[in-house]
């Protein structure tokens, strides 16, 4: 299993610090302009939830296969595997049997489930 590298740990800590700072100083970048994405795509989000940065955005690149309809979710910069169900609900690998309405709700459910634990990057997850 991949272990948390010092570099990643430092990067995650730095990102978290930056996210907290950004959250304090500016409004969270949660509200993208509606024409930034087609109407079927979920709203991007970027917020600090329970002390952790959660982000959702259109997937960049093709290094991972995405099952979120081209949408990716990160917890403290680590990708969280998410999936969109046929009815539009979402699940993630840490809450796989319990659909929620949006990818932001899936990210928050993941933070709740993790209880502070560091997510491992997939393909591990």
């Amino acid at each position: 299993m991949p272990e948390l590298s010092r570099r990643r740990a430092l990067g995650t800590a730095a990102a978290l610090t930056a996210a907290v700072a950004a959250h304090t100083l500016t409004a969270p970048a949660a509200s993208a302009a509606p024409d930034d994405h087609h109407h079927d795509s979920p709203e991007p989000f970027d917020e600090v939830y329970k002390g952790r940065r959660i982000q959702g955005r259109p997937a960049s690149g093709s290094e991972h296969h995405h099952h979120g309809g081209g949408f990716e979710v990160l917890v403290d910069q680590v990708p969280l595997h998410v999936m969109r169900n046929a009815d539009g609900t979402w699940i993630s690998v840490v809450s796989h049997y319990d659909p929620v309405p949006t990818p932001r709700a899936a990210a928050r459910a993941a933070v709740d489930e993790l209880q502070g634990a560091v997510l491992l990057p997939f393909p591990a997850n």
Partner: peptide, 25 residues
């Protein structure tokens, strides 16, 4: 399986919680 209706299989995974609620159940 539980994706529709009263929800049998999926709900049991959620009831147990922990790793049982995840992909590595």
């Amino acid at each position: 399986e539980g994706w529709r209706g009263v929800n049998l299989h999926n709900r049991v995974h959620v009831w147990v919680g922990g790793q049982m609620a995840t992909g590595v159940s």
